[in-house]
């Protein structure tokens, strides 16, 4: 994966994602009521909100799948409404449900995406990503035989093909078990380490806490808070903080009993803080 993030940064200055006054309604239902957000290049940005807060709508607009009623959005310097084709060359979307082809093998899925991105040596790209996401052994198996975590890893691997400077992850860990969730977190950290900008949506407070450089809280179609974790912590009511702190403890217990924390998924990624029983290898 060869894109130099510094070079990309010089090509387009300023925030890689800029959203101004974004509004979207489905008939009477006002999903977005004026969203303003900026995401710095190379950062992990979490859009936090409960179900129905409008997170997916934001991601769908940014990835050119949906047109806003009002407001503007640019990704990598391109307007999502008027330069949709250029935006699509700059992004990758990993939706809420793993967008993988069940009937094809993992390797065939990767080759398919590499071909559709018109890259040279699709087979070599596929093999490299299989290795990076610990899927080499499963590479020739049909995806329908994969576990939820493997499917997600493949899904994210497919999103990395062609080195898009911006990646959208829409609720990447919803429905995953704790091990699979850690695998995904490691993959996301790996991405950011290589300079990719990641915008992820989540309804899990601890996920935003673990991964994000900056967190925005989307509530009833508006951004009601936006800042780094320490900034936001001062805003959150204590009851909520207690809930957040409790959850990893149960996870620690679970992982300690099960005896597997997913460290063998992606080599060289940083360990998630807050999970203490590392060292299965």
């Amino acid at each position: 994966m060869s894109t130099d993030p510094q070079m990309t940064a010089e090509r387009v200055r300023g925030p890689v994602i800029q959203v101004r006054g974004l509004a979207k309604a489905y008939k009477e239902l006002h999903v977005l009521r004026g969203v303003d957000v900026e995401v710095a290049r190379g950062s992990i940005f979490a859009l936090l909100g409960s179900n129905g807060a409008g997170k997916t709508t934001v991601v769908r607009i940014l990835s050119t799948l949906l047109k806003p009623d009002a407001g503007t959005a640019t990704v990598n310097g391109f307007d999502v409404a008027t330069q949709a084709a250029r935006v699509r060359e700059s992004i990758s979307l990993t939706g809420q449900f793993a967008a993988v082809d069940e009937i094809l093998s993992g390797r065939e899925n990767l080759v398919l995406v590499a071909r559709l991105r018109h890259l040279r040596d699709p087979g070599g790209i596929a093999d490299e990503l299989l290795a990076r996401f610990a899927l080499t052994d499963a590479g020739t198996r049909r995806v329908s035989t994969y576990s939820g975590g493997m499917r997600r890893r493949l899904d994210i691997a497919m999103s990395l093909i062609g080195d898009p400077p911006v990646i959208f992850l829409d609720e990447p860990t919803t429905g995953l078990d704790p091990q699979a969730r850690l695998e995904v977190w490691q993959a996301v950290r790996e991405l950011a380490r290589q300079g990719t900008t990641v915008l992820l949506t989540t309804q899990y407070l601890d996920e935003a806490e673990q991964l994000a450089d900056r967190i925005a809280i989307l509530h009833q179609g508006r951004i009601i808070a936006n800042g780094t974790l320490p900034e936001l912590k001062r805003l959150l009511p204590p009851a909520k903080v207690e809930y957040v702190e409790k959850q990893p403890t149960l996870e620690d217990v679970f992982l300690a009993i099960v005896g597997d924390d997913g460290t063998d998924s992606t080599a060289g990624a940083a360990s998630p803080a807050g999970t203490k029983n590392r060292g299965t290898r």
């Binding site: 990835s63 799948l65 084709a85 699509r88 979307l93 967008a99 995406v113 991105r117």
Partner: peptide, 10 residues
Amino acid sequence: GIFERFQSMP
């Protein structure tokens, strides 16, 4: 969801 993946790609 693979349809949306294709739609969000060039």
